[in-house]
Amino acid sequence: MRNFFRNSPTEAILLIVLAVVCLILTVATDQFLTLVNLANLLNASAINIIFAVGLVVVLIAGGIDISFAVAASVVQYVTVYVLAYFGGGNWLLGFLIAGSLGIGLGLINAFLIHYFRIISIVVTIATFNAFFGLLMFITSGRYLYNLPDWWTTRIILVEHQTASGRWAELTLPVAVMVVASIATWFLIRMTTTGRQLYAFGDNPEGARRVGINVAAMQAIAFGWAGMMAGIAGLMQVNFVQEVVPNALMGRELDVLAAVVLGGARLGGGKGSVLGCILGVMLIAIIQNGLNLLGISPFAFKMIVGAFILIAITLSNISFANFNFGRRT
């Protein structure tokens, strides 16, 4: 416990803040602490958490990616057509196609960053626009509703009827989120590759000197982020039951903010799966709470933005001296 507080101070503080917010909402509203509300919160946040655990790997390796959400939209479209080619497919094929397409798009970023020595923010601003522009141009912004049944059917994992008669359900994206989180945790905590990613993000020159393969690090980081984005895209279609080319626009900033809130650092070497989950959940719970408290939905983004700005300021005050790693 003492170690947790010292080695993961951000996660620890986040946990406390989360507990306080939950406590306040429990007292202030009678709907917050209900099974139905909590289950819905989890269902709605699952996709962002899948995105987040992908992105955190890039941040750990010292990069930044803002193209992943748009990449997920591209993956959704291409997957629809590839599945049609295979005559409908199934979940296994869906995961394989979406995952590998995502990896492919991530590797484009990694290649440009590593080979041409372009900073990652510039590369991903460019690929963000290239992906989005081409997608909108080729699809003319068309929505797709005619999707395979297996893809759009809600799969309920656990359900429970509450006393009020409403159903509390956990759906497939939650299970995928759990698997994605465990896989990412395993990669970054338990494998040698994961530790090399931390080392590379922490001190790129030191990593190069001990013989870490720098190109492989970029490829793994952006490939992982791409794969998670592809899978998140697959899940998002399952959740909303349609494919809309600009549905995920802007999601990258929400996810990035949540991951940074969770303790990841621009400049690399820091970040955890727990932090991602806590960051995404905190923002989701605040929005949920504002909603339950009857505050105008137009105010959500403003309040969340202010909250993030304050959080970044506060979390940097104690680390101000270590935070000048501006270069990728």
């Binding site: 040698t192 994961g194 530790r195 090399q196 013989g211």
Partner: peptide
Amino acid sequence: AFEAVLGNVPRVV
């Protein structure tokens, strides 16, 4: 013990 995590083939730490 950084040595232990080096190498191109991923292993469990």
